[in-house]
Nucleic acid binder design. Structure first.
Lengths: 213, 213
DNA sequence: ACGTTAAGACCGACCGGACGGTATGGGGCC
DNA sequence: GGCCCCATACCGTCCGGTCGGTCTTAACGT
């Protein structure tokens, strides 16, 4: 049996094709990123998705739910990826470099989500903010563990506390949506590599080669 | 009707001693930082300031004006300070370090303004956003010039483009309000010093001493 | 094969209220 | 009496959310 395969003729949208629920989240994310959470009305979202409010409230309990979903998906994805890297093989330096690059790349590949994340988190109800922050903190701690490992075995300088280092680096990554343009000269991987060099440099580690211009 | 009889002593209203206009901006900034621009109503602001809407719309043309004022004051202040440092004496390394520390300290000393800045800029009308971004860009360019100067004379590594370095550092600073707590263990100066070490390290420069933990 | 029922998917008119902003007026000070 | 400074009352709009209803599809009984 075919699972739901209809194509309404009355839909003026070409964006169709995907299931409505997924489409709603996608367009909502884009609109939130462009106009902000409060600058986007539910009507805007459903118009862009080619449906009506009835459809949206059929799939999501509230506008907040939509926002929460953005966070949840992004965090789950990034945490999973970091986990794989941390638990993988290689020296602390190799793993930290991989993690540093990965967080940049995965952030740039989901730029809209990132922009929404760090601009509209405060619009969620308190309890959900707390939950998100807890997940975020877990991410931070994983990263920190990696840094501390390298400090313990002498690979990294302990000049600056690991906590500060991680805050510093993740802050830089979080704000990346404020200046990076996908159509600019740098690929997401290139940015990841540059950023990871800056992080490792800050920890006293430089690639075997060059140091001077 | 029993109209409130005002306090004697010549002062305009009770509550706080400062003039109403300044008080409005101050409480608005705090509320914006706590609850977001969109999460703060004009009524909230005037209640907190102990006046009514009439007073607010007497001094400010709109709610947007209040937000703009926050940005303008912060940017003007920081630009002035950076200017003094850039044009001052000392090696590029000394001046960059001073600038790196100063931007952290002046940001932490105006934490609420910073939080509002990077969370609610997008709520301003397009033309004002453009203007603010231009001022911000000027700040960025000043900082970049300092980095390039050091790269040119070989003090700093040219491994990573100056533009990326500056985006990286200023992003980290901009997000500082997301984790720093004034009542925590670190003073703003200490954070500035740690951050500047990480920046300089990323540029291949370390204090004469240590590198290993 | 056919009718009946149930449930999911979605529509769209509508509501209560909050919000930014304004019009008007009164009181203190020169 | 004229001029700031500010209070009070009020307005139009917009927005998140609701609710009854319709259409389609699947399941079941006969």
């Amino acid at each position: 049996m075919a699972v739901r395969q209809k194509e309404s003729a009355g839909s003026p949208r070409a964006s169709a094709g995907r299931p409505v629920k997924e489409r709603l989240l996608r367009v909502a994310t884009r609109l939130f990123a462009r106009n902000g959470f409060e600058g986007t009305s539910v009507q805007d979202i459903v118009d862009a998705a080619g449906v009506t409010k009835g459809a949206m409230y059929h799939y999501y309990g509230s506008k907040d739910d939509l926002l929460y979903e953005v966070y949840h998906q992004l965090l789950t994805m990034q945490t999973t990826r970091l986990n794989d890297i941390v638990k993988g093989s290689g020296t602390p330096e190799e793993r930290l470099r991989a993690a540093a690059i990965d967080v940049v790349v995965s952030s740039l590949d989901n730029l809209d989500d990132m922009i929404v994340f760090f601009r509209s988190l405060h619009m969620l109800p308190e309890d959900r903010q707390t939950q998100i922050r807890a997940e975020r903190r877990a991410y931070h701690d994983q990263f920190k563990a990696l840094v501390e490992e390298g400090m313990a075995d002498g690979t990294f300088s302990s000049e600056v506390p690991a906590d500060v280092v991680v805050h510093y680096y993740l802050s830089a990554v979080n704000q990346i949506g404020a200046w990076y343009r996908p159509d600019g000269p740098l690929t997401s991987l290139q940015v990841g590599e540059e950023y990871s060099k800056l992080l490792l440099g800050g920890l006293g580690v430089w690639p075997s080669a060059v140091t001077g211009g």
